[in-house]
Design a protein around this nucleic acid. Structure first.
Lengths: 220, 220
DNA sequence: ATTATTTTTTAGAATCAACTAAATTATTTA
DNA sequence: TAAATAATTTAGTTGATTCTAAAAAATAAT
């Protein structure tokens, strides 16, 4: 299996994330935005990743990730998410602090390390943000989940993930007492702006805008 | 505080280790041997480290590490050794597997990470090889050296000196594969005569009398 | 005290990953 | 459909880290 450099791994991961859902090619500009590098730098990297056969690259028409590339991306994501679990569960990081550190740890290359860490953590299936952790073969458990704003009044569920996992948003959730695993119930929905009143863990009332609710994924 | 690159950190660490003990300057060739890079590459790196004020570099006369450099080296060593403790104690690595992985982990830059890891591990003072772990200020506990025969079963240490340095005794040590710097571990102790079974460098089993052991000083 | 040897540095090149500026291709608009 | 705009690529540069080959300085030997 081809070895990727640190930078190549980061690009591949971005391309994988941008590919999720839609089957359309990912554009140079999309990658440039995601990676915060210039389009010219992206073009260069795409050529390299194409040569290493982890993406299918047609000049001017964007890229598609190959099966081999998908496998490798999932292994990097697996490492990232396992480290996040470690940081939150063992080192008492709050879930908005872990991303940057995991971003570095995910590049440490030692298969046995991840095997042992996985074991140490008890083979977790989801990371602290509720995202699934691929197993060693790249397979991942999926939970049917829908945005909180799509729930009706009286509907109940459990927060399992967030769409926008920016530190600012995670801090906001933390502040208001919402977290992955919290049991919630929709008490009221304002027709005018789509804002919600929800009950968290059967004890705390909380108002949130439609925009915030759309970023929270729940398991009903 | 000046930020060092990955490679600069590794060079600084090597220079620190080569400086230990002796007060003499460290030569370009010494560093070249230690780092497995060519002397020409070392010269270039020394210029950079000199500019960053972590070493005192006089062309053709080798280098001395500065106070600032020593501080930084000790923080890298602290990270390396804390990770080694983690790998051995929590992930069940054997002590000969940990070095390479720790070599990568030591470069992850997050002060809070090391603080929390240190706490999680219970503020260990020594790594699995018996080397002291610098605290956050760079201070390290030194262990008094003691005769090998005073160690208990399962105790580990490093041979640092001999009491009797007669040629005959040194020849004997050489023959059995023990030497200054060798890592040893006491596997068994015979009560009757005080003789020992020890493991040398994690690979060679060795029987020795109490008299011989009493002549070997170890650092625990 | 010269000469020979060893050590160290300089000069120039390669690779990786970023950049800017300019050129090229694709897409949109009039 | 031709011109304008947007997206993308190419060419050339920079900085970091390595290398080889050659020059220079320090040290050892005759």
């Amino acid at each position: 299996m081809m070895i990727l450099t640190y930078a190549e791994e980061n690009y591949l991961k971005s391309i994988y994330h941008l590919s999720e859902g839609g089957k359309k090619s990912v554009s140079t500009n999309d990658i440039s935005n995601e990676m915060k590098t210039k389009p010219a730098s992206v073009s260069d990297m795409l050529r390299k990743l194409g040569e290493k056969l982890v993406i299918d690259y047609r000049k001017y028409y964007g890229v598609n990730i190959t099966e081999e590339g998908k496998k490798m991306a999932l292994q990097i994501i697996r490492k990232h998410r396992l480290w996040e679990v470690f940081l939150v569960e063992k080192l008492r990081f709050s879930w908005d602090e872990v991303h940057e550190v995991a971003e570095e740890l995910e590049h440490v290359k030692s298969p046995v390390l991840m095997q042992r860490l996985d074991e140490f953590l008890g083979h977790p299936k989801f990371d602290p943000h509720g995202d699934p952790i691929p197993d060693e073969f790249g397979d991942l458990k999926s939970r049917p989940r829908l945005p909180l704003n799509e729930l009706e009044v009286h509907d109940a569920g459990q927060i399992v993930a967030v769409k926008d996992s920016s530190a600012a948003f995670l801090r906001y959730l933390d502040k208001v007492g919402a977290y992955i695993g919290a049991r919630i119930k929709v008490l009221d929905k304002v027709e005018f702006d789509g804002s919600l009143e929800i009950l968290v863990d059967n004890k705390k009332n909380l108002f949130m805008s439609k925009e915030v609710a759309a970023n929270i994924l729940v398991l009903q």
